[in-house]
Amino acid sequence: MGCTCNSSDKEKLFCSGVLVDNRPGAVLPPQDAWEKKKGGYVIIECPQRIPCNPCATSCPTGAVVPFVDINDVPAIDYDKCTGCALCVAKCPGLACFVVDLTYGADEAVIKLPYELEPKPVKGARVKCLNRVGDEVSDGEVFAVTEPLKDHTTVVSVVIPKKLVGEIRAIKVVC
């Protein structure tokens, strides 16, 4: 994971579970293709080698490249990713997201896993949180599904396009 833990504040943050900078197992899609891709691409933030492969085994198209070793960090074949979000529902680490940049000029849709109560409902306004839980914008819930019928919901939220690199969670406000 390349974690030295005493080099810099950034690494300290990373060692406490906050992604800083792209690294193997946690990369953004190639920008040009991403901007045109209807349905969006998957973003997986799983930069540590751990014995876990459901993202790859649940992927219906092979877009999460099949692992050679179960400890591999995920790699994405963007030609194959349809943005179906099955991995979002399946990942035990809640580390998979799908971001569609084609929703509007300034807006994007993020599909993220959600396992808290109360569940958001379609059309609701939610607070969008960054990787340390700060509220960075409002968002509108576009869809709520439970693809695997196992209590992990996948929530689609319309968010400001400029924040697609930051927003990774939501807070339901009643």
Binding site: C15, G17, A95, R131, G133, D134
Partner: peptide, 19 residues
């Protein structure tokens, strides 16, 4: 310790909830 002992993704998942 200077880093989380559990899986990084477990830490990330509670960090983004503001813990």
């Amino acid at each position: 310790m200077p880093k989380v002992g559990g899986y990084w993704v477990h830490a990330a998942k509670i960090r983004r909830l503001g813990i």
